[in-house]
Amino acid sequence: MFRAVISEAKEFKKVIDAASNLLDEICFEVNEEGIKARAMDPSHVALVSIDIPKEAFEEYEADVHDIGVDLEAFKKIMNRAKAKDKLILELDEEKNKLNVIFKGAATRKFALALYDVSSSNLQVPDIEYPNEILIKAGPFVDALKDADLVNDHVTLKVEDGKFIVYAKGDLNESETIFEEDSESIISMNIGENAKSTFNLEYLRDMTKAASSSDILKIYLGTDMPVKIEYDVAGANLTFLLAPRIES
């Protein structure tokens, strides 16, 4: 069996939005400890990892199940959540559906078809990074929006103790500089200068679920995948994005 109650449906919607920006379908692995999901996007450029411990739920009860769903369909259903709705997720093993129930002014029930998405057994690789930056999501997303004006890729740099978001187009350039004492920065653990370039659209998608005051943990090296972690509604979201490398 699987049944979970989430006090704010709108918050859980952010988790589904974050995944659906990058993936078509996902397998939620549920057990008595909580829910987890790991998947790579179809081009294997990005990896999404979601961990929701049972403590994040108002009520939680589960045996071991793999629950595969189409994320576009799940996202459309979650878009129907009202501001104060509670969300109940329950597995109907007989009908092979995930019931998605909103409890607010009325009780509204959707039955979401399950797909045979096998659990991937993916692990987030344990990489050592020279630099770890804790930054408010709002200013970082703003820096990405600035970069978007000049090109479709962006360079993240650590240079002389500063974290820099830089983009260069054929004609124009943009640069946002975060110094350690800037109010956007929570902390910077800098080991060495580093520089990697990434597709901007992926980075935008990965940070879409974060509210502007949420804290992003950004792990950065040179010509290495960037790792971005943050928490939404008690869920931990981790993203890895492969860089563009000068050939």
Binding site: M40, H44, L47, L122, K168, T197, L240, P243, I245, S247
Partner: peptide, 14 residues
């Protein structure tokens, strides 16, 4: 700028 590489180029993730 450069070439988009995949995560498979870095890790054996599976």
């Amino acid at each position: 700028f450069g070439k988009q590489v995949t995560l498979d180029d870095f890790f054996k993730i599976n």
